[in-house]
Nucleic acid binder design. Sequence first.
DNA 1: GCATCCAATTGACCGAAATCAACTGCTGCC
DNA 2: GGCAGCAGTTGATTTCGGTCAATTGGATGC
Lengths: 254, 254
Amino acid sequence: MDSGAVILDLNQLRRSCASCSLHELCLPAGIYGDDLKQLDTAIRDKRALERGSSLYRDGDAFKALYVVRSGSLKTFVQNEAGDLQILAFHLPGEILGFDALASNRHVSQAEALEHSGICELPYDRLMQVSNDVPALHRQLMRVISREMVAEHRHLVMMGRQPAQERLAIFLQNLADRYSRLNRSDTSLTLSMSRHDIANYLGLAVETVSRLFTRMQETGVLEVNRKSVRILRPDLLAELCNTQHPAHLKRHDHD
Amino acid sequence: MDSGAVILDLNQLRRSCASCSLHELCLPAGIYGDDLKQLDTAIRDKRALERGSSLYRDGDAFKALYVVRSGSLKTFVQNEAGDLQILAFHLPGEILGFDALASNRHVSQAEALEHSGICELPYDRLMQVSNDVPALHRQLMRVISREMVAEHRHLVMMGRQPAQERLAIFLQNLADRYSRLNRSDTSLTLSMSRHDIANYLGLAVETVSRLFTRMQETGVLEVNRKSVRILRPDLLAELCNTQHPAHLKRHDHD
DNA sequence: GCATCCAATTGACCGAAATCAACTGCTGCC
DNA sequence: GGCAGCAGTTGATTTCGGTCAATTGGATGC
């Protein structure tokens, strides 16, 4: 209400990249000194996003890339027939919006899974800065490439893995990313619904629910609604790689 | 054998971007005049690739991006457990190798499906040129983004679509790309095996075979080994979008 | 505090596609 | 020319995960 609150909010949001705790995980990785200061000028802060509200939608004009500063989001596409596919869940430090580079329109939607803070990187500013800072361009490409590689993993999972492995891989991947954020990698708080998990994994909600139960019964997890504790990381790792049918494996290559 | 043959071969391969028939579909799209000449200096020609031989493999150091000039390739990943997933089939004008930008190593393999010609774009030269030609950077990002969007479509297919739709979508997509190359979009010559198609679609070979038979029986296709004629494009389009279960559709978004 | 609503779980049943198996027919090689 | 070997097809059977249905239980609101 009063201007004090506004200033406080701005202080919280307006922080330079150099002092941001996500520094090493975010776009600035590998960019230093004056270059980093210049990058700072390209970053516009963005108000917080409430759970369920959208950062961008399918068809929106491309204006900026976005970095998750806090909270989490999901991105998804919908085809003409209306089927919805979740592409990814995004944790702090991760960059969204690359889908729009091709056509200057977003072809997916990004929605907050919880109260989240976002840094906005207006694309034209970013391009201006990267004229002076060649490293920025390379870093941007690296980040996109990283995202492509992650998508490849998703694709392998969807094409080849049975249900239990999918969930195991999903949980392990989340745990890995949590630990990179210096959070516990054995005690996860899932910000997405079972429905979202199921959709992301290409499974039915019921299957995901049953798998959670089964993994709890076998002592791998302790599940309590959104909170998942990994009791046996070793067993979870095993579940990620059980043997499956031969025809899916490498054929004659090599 | 004689030097005449060598010169002919070089003539065929060493052609500037400006005169290349793939011009408008390839990296040079949107780059003109002197900029295009400069881009030309970054392009090293590459010998032809025989069917079954690899352009790069998992673990290879990243040196260059590659453009398919003629023929076709498949790219695939293999996880630790050995399951292989084909990521894409690449037709003339398409660019490969972006997966290596993230880590400076390829994390996938590219293999020729038939005798193919390749343009090599050494990455350091490309970066040098793009310092002078800002449009090149943007174009590169656009191309990567386009690839990401294509991967999203693949992901929707894998996660949500039943078998017949997958094959229909695959064929229609191929037909579209053929027509952009000014080839017939009703008469396809599949350079990949049934095995490859099945793997790409996340299905068993037998399922793919049965689907081809069924689509022939219903008069949609005329199939003869590698050659597929689309008799009823309208029916094929319908098959791409039949109705499926409600839980996969959009939930409350909007 | 209680009613409503929706997320999540659990159970029973079903079906699409995988697996297993047999066979056909190219293709290439001696 | 004939045979080996593999790609592809076809059929029978199984199975994993989806669908349908009922129930639980945590939140939210009055």
